[in-house]
Structures are given as C-alpha cells and as structure tokens.
Design a protein around this nucleic acid. Structure first.
Length: 660
DNA sequence: ACCACTAGGATTTTT
DNA sequence: TCCTAGTGGT
C-alpha cells in the first residue's frame, strides 16, 4: 500500500486527483517532484496500466530519476519498462520513428542535426543567395527559423514583416536541404510531430487511447508547439496534470510561453488548481532574499514561498577587485566550508550566468587541486574527433546524409578533395542513388575516374564504401552480450581508418600526447554505445545516436562524485545544493547586457524580468547557505569591463546580508 | 590535394 | 585572447 502520510494537504490533493485536468502551481522547493512521482504511483495503485501513463520531464536525467523513484515507491522494478517518462524531444523522436510513414518530410533512418550543422546549412543558404554573411548572420537565421518553428509556422507561410522576408527565403532553402538529407533539427521534432497529429486523426486517436494519463513537469517552459501537441493528445480523456511555477519561467528566449500555465483554466474550465507554497528546501534567509527579489517583477501572480524552518544564515557577499580575486576568494571559502564546516565538495555548487565565467574559476581550481566538475561537458561532443565519429555513424545510419558524408569522406586523408566530393554528390543526385549504390555503380562501369582522379582517391573511395556496407550488414544481426553494438562500431571505426589516423606511433613527438588523447576520446565514445542504457536489445545505433543528439548539458551532472559542481543557472533548474555560490552578480552579466539594453532602447522589461526569474531560480537552489560575489573589473575573454553590482543584489534586504 | 599562415570574429541562456 | 575559417603557396 502506498504511504501518503509524508504529504501535506495540498500535495495530497494533487496526488489524489486522479482524473480530469489538474494544474499545480508549485513554488521552488515545494515538493513538486514528490507530488508528481507519488501521483504516478497512486495512478498505478488504482489499477491504471503503466503503459497508459506519459510523463514529460525537462531533462533525460530527471526522467530516469523519476522512473526509478516510482519503481522504488511501488517496490516493483517491472513498472519502469512500461512507463513512458521522457523529455518532449525524446518522446517526439520515438513517435516519429514509430509512425515514420505519417511524416511527410522524413523517412526511415533520419538523423538529427546539431547546432553546428544548422549553422553551416544556414551559411550555405545565405551564400547561395549571394548575401553577405557578415550582414546576414547565420546565427540570426537560426534564431528566425527556430522561432517560426516553435510557433508552428512553415516556410511557405508568408511573413508579413517586410524586412523579415529575406530570412523566410533562407528558412526555405535551409529546410529543403534538411529534407533532402533526410535530417531534421530539434525544433522539427516537435513541429513534425504536431503536423502528424494534425494530419492523421486516426493516429492521434490511437495515441489518446494509449496515453490516457499525461503529466507534464515545468509546464511554464512549454512553447506553442509543445502546448499544441499536448492539447491534441489529451483532448479525448482530458486527464492532463501539469506542474509549474511562473516565477521560474526562464526559457522565453527559445519560445517558451508561461501564459500557457496561466491560461490553463481557460482551456480546461473544469480544472482543479492546487497551490504549493510551503518550501521544504531552503533556510528562511534564502527564501526571504528570493521573495524580496522576485517581488520586483510586474508581470506575475503574487506568491510567497513559506519557510518550514527557522534556520538562517547570513547571505555572504564579496566585492572583488577583479575576476581573479573573486576566484581565489571562492577557493578560500570552499576550503573553509569543507575543512571546518560540515560540508563536502559535492555539497557545493557554483552558478554562473554564462559559460565564459567558468574559466577563471577553473584556472584557480586546477592550480590549487580543488576537485570540481563543470556540468555541460557536452564540450566532449564538440571535439573534432568525436564529431567525426558521430558523423561516420550518422552517415551509415542515414545514407542520404550527404552533410555527414562531406565531413568524413576525407578523414583520414583518402585523396578525395572538394571537386571529387561535388562530383560524387552530383552523381548521386542525378541518378537518384545513395553513396554506396553510386560508388558500386561507378565501380561496375569502371567509371570511377569520372569522380576521382588519383589512384589513391579511387582506392580510398571503394574502401570507404566497403566499410560502410559491412557495418550496415553487421547491424542486421541483433545485438547481444557476445556481439554488442560497441564491437560493431569498433570494427567500423577500424575499417575506415579512424584509429590509424590517431595512432600515436604515427605522430610527431610534439603531437604524440594529442593523438593519445584523441584516440582515448574515440574509444570512450565507443564505450558509451554500451553504457548508455541497460537493456541489450534496445541498444540500437538509432537509439544511441538519438541519445547523443538529445543529451542536454544538465544530463552530464554527476552527483555521486565528491566534487564542486560548476554550472549555468539554467542548467541548475530542478536541482538543490546545501551551499550555492553565485558569481559575477553584476550589471551586464546578470542581468545580461542584452536584457539591460532591451529595457534602455526598446523599453521592454520582459527580458529583464526573465533575468530576475533566473536569479530567483539560482537563489532557491540553496538549501542552507548562499554566497554572492561580484567584481569591480572583469576581464571576460577579449573584453574588459567595469560593472556595478547587479540591480538584483540591491533588491536583497540589507539585514540578510553579510558583506565581506 | 594538402599544408601553413593570417585575419577577423566571438559568448547569454538550450533542446 | 583565443579559435576558426578562409587563402595562397607548394
């Protein structure tokens, strides 16, 4: 029997409201994850089939944890497999793959582009329109395209804004390329799923019957595409349970719209609304500071976090001369907390507004030997050798992916240059063939010379083709302990010459370490194909690549290691730490200069209010103690600036502060 | 086809 | 300041 005794009245209501729409407005630290997991367990206790439950979380890590918690609550590991708990994006990939025939823009084997590929495609589009990429920046194009997709606008829908029409043309070219390569971007996952729903009532009907109970965490951060998806999915049974907090809406820049949660009652007039205001996480002083800051936002529903403890610590602040002094102050504070205080390194988090700010901290921690870990080591996937490895896999999985082909065809050097690449691409397009077929046809007709000139080039091309063919063949035998995916990948990488390319014996003395390192990275990446999920039969190449593409920064957080955690405020959402440091709490950093400018030049305070919510999120991560620092002078990359302390700092009542 | 050098741009937050 | 893409020479 499920033990509900640890819940308060409001949490209890949320857990007990099994049917119909429910909206839980949950302040930071008010036990919303607990309510969410308990409710899933409660549904199961009341005879709901686990396969009928769909829960959407904000990160893959949160999904995994929720799954484990439910299984533990019910003392039944078997429910784990039957439950569907994932992020919007992961859920959408699966839906598209299962219903690929209903998706008019993708076919079997499609793969997801990363932001670098997106940028490259945008740049190609800009160049082929004879526009100056310095004036029409690929980054701006990406923003435009993403914004349109998040609002469910396809490229053929006329853009009324006269000066936006260039971007619309770029959008069109970009999208046509993606479709040709059988690829999609992050936003397409949501958009295409929405289109499938809209155009296939039969499919929606089936899914509605399957997922009778839908739960969504962090609902304040859903965008129009996600909102519309959910609406279609739940319109039949209306068992929609959403949890969120308007004060923690921090993803407006990517189309998230917190009015979705404010208007929940309009869409579902019969909805039950539950307010969770009691905070079980933080000390009274932390909550008073957080409340005082967030009160300054005009666009909000008044709400105060209520402390459940009288414990309080002063909020320690420090004004540093520059970022280096700030970093060493941090170091001494940490040594003090760990050496004399009751804390371990893993109890401490350092939250930053942007990724650049981690560098001076790392410099000090490396010299002093402080154990730390930067969340968002997605940087691993940005290394050239890992991108090459991924591109090799994506090309094998998706034969139409000429973008990945371009990346790998001459790595290692095979004597195939720009001209040959173009000739091969054209041959494929003109004869409606994919790479392997094209090379085989040319080989059979003894016509390889028409695409590559050198003997080395011809041999290289045929060898690459064979390696891909063999790999694809090996994928057809099911994975097993004796013959795991990672072995097949290893063989493939060996065959294409990736290992030989970074063989340290081939390196000059000064490159030896670099080669060793790169080789190690490739091998680690290869191992991940084995480790990323427990069940052998689901470790397909497709699943592995989806996993790699959709892994978020926050998913790289390891809490079991005894290390100080450094991460962005955004990535800290949903987490808690006994001790939290917020660094660079300065005007133009936090709030960002873009937000400050927006208010000054366009008069819009919306970006500033989002920054304030971000500060609120950062503050409320702290369970016990909060430390805040700012510097008079900051050298950040190539720029040097003198900033005032953050306006949010001045919003903290003085009596809570201990200024060092 | 490949290498070495140079100029210019870059970092707000992310699936 | 550092990294990247683009250019010109071999």
């Amino acid at each position: 029997m499920l033990d509900l005794s640890s819940l308060n009245n409001e949490q209890r209501q949320a857990v007990d409201a099994l049917n119909g729409p429910v909206c839980v407005l949950a302040g930071a630290g008010s036990g919303k994850t607990k309510a969410l997991t308990m409710r899933i367990a409660n549904l199961l206790e009341h005879g709901v089939n686990p396969s009928q439950i769909l829960a959407i979380t904000f990160t893959n890590k949160a999904a995994r944890e929720m799954n484990e918690r439910v299984a533990k609550l019910l003392n039944n590991p078997l429910v784990s497999d039957a439950l569907t708990i994932s992020t919007f994006h992961s859920f959408c990939v699966k839906l598209i793959r299962w219903n690929i025939k209903n998706c008019q823009y993708l076919s079997e084997g499609f793969s997801i582009v990363d932001s670098d590929d997106m940028k490259a495609l945008c740049k190609n589009a800009i160049l082929s329109l004879n526009l100056d990429p310095a004036k029409f920046k690929p980054g701006t194009a990406m923003g435009y395209i993403s914004d349109k997709k998040n609002h469910l606008v396809w490229y053929d829908q006329y853009d009324e804004e006269p000066n936006q029409q260039v971007w619309q043309v770029i959008y069109k070219m970009y999208q046509e390329q993606l479709i040709k390569f059988n690829r999609c971007d992050f936003d397409d996952l949501l958009f295409y799923t929405y289109l499938m729903f809209r155009d296939n009532p039969g499919m929606v009907d089936k899914l509605q019957d399957r997922y009778r109970y839908v739960l969504i965490d962090e609902y304040q951060d859903t965008n129009e595409a996600q909102y519309s998806l959910v609406k279609l999915l739940t319109s039949k049974y209306r068992n929609l349970f959403v949890v969120g907090d308007v004060d923690q809406a921090i993803y407006g820049f990517r189309g998230s719209d917190y009015t979705n949660i404010l208007n929940f009652n309009k869409d579902y007039p019969e909805a039950k609304t539950i307010l969770l205001e009691k905070n079980y996480r933080s000390t009274a002083s932390v909550l008073e500071a957080a409340n005082a800051v967030i009160e300054n936002n005009k666009k909000r529903v008044p709400k105060k976090l209520i402390a459940t403890t009288n414990e309080r610590f002063p909020i320690v602040s420090f004004e540093a001369a520059d970022e280096r002094q700030e970093a060493s102050w941090l170091y001494y504070k940490i040594m003090d907390l760990v050496g004399r205080g009751p804390y371990n390194y893993k109890d401490i988090a350092i939250l930053v507004r942007n990724n650049m700010l981690t560098k001076p901290l790392e410099d000090v921690f490396i010299v002093k030997g402080t154990p730390y870990h930067v969340v968002g080591a997605r940087a691993f996937y940005d290394r050239a050798e890992i991108k090459d490895s991924v591109a090799y896999l994506k090309f094998a999985q998706n034969p139409k992916d000429m973008l990945s082909m371009q990346r790998v065809i001459n790595k290692p050097k095979r004597g195939i240059g720009e001209k040959s690449v173009l000739a091969i691409s054209n041959y494929c397009t003109n004869n409606d063939l994919v790479f392997v077929e094209a090379v085989e046809q040319l080989e059979a007709q003894d016509a390889l010379s028409s695409v590559v000139t050198s003997a080395k080039g011809k041999a290289g091309l045929v060898a690459l083709k064979d390696a891909i063919k063999n790999f694809r063949q090996s994928l057809k035998t099911p994975n097993s302990k004796q013959n795991p995916l990672t072995n097949k990948i290893h063989q493939y990488f060996y065959n294409v010459g990736l290992f030989e390319m970074y063989n340290p014996n081939n390196a000059s003395p000064e490159d030896e370490e670099i080669y060793k390192n790169k080789l190690g990275n490739i091998q680690n990446f290869n191992m991940m194909a084995e480790e990323y999920r427990p069940d052998e039969e689901n470790k397909t190449l497709e699943n592995f690549l989806d996993h790699v593409s959709l892994m978020s920064d926050a998913d790289t957080h390891k809490e079991n290691e005894n290390k100080v955690t450094i991460m962005t405020c955004h990535a800290s959402k949903g987490l808690e730490f006994p001790v939290v440091f917020i660094v660079a709490f300065e005007e133009s950093v936090f709030p960002s200069w873009q937000a400050v400018n927006a208010e000054a030049f366009t008069g819009s305070s919306l970006p500033l209010e989002e920054e304030r919510r971000l500060a609120y999120v950062a503050f409320t991560r702290a369970k016990k103690q909060l430390f805040i620092s700012y510097a008079q002078k900051r050298r950040s990359g190539y720029k040097e600036s003198y900033n005032d302390p953050s306006r949010f700092y001045n919003e903290i009542p003085c009596q809570l502060l201990d200024e060092e």
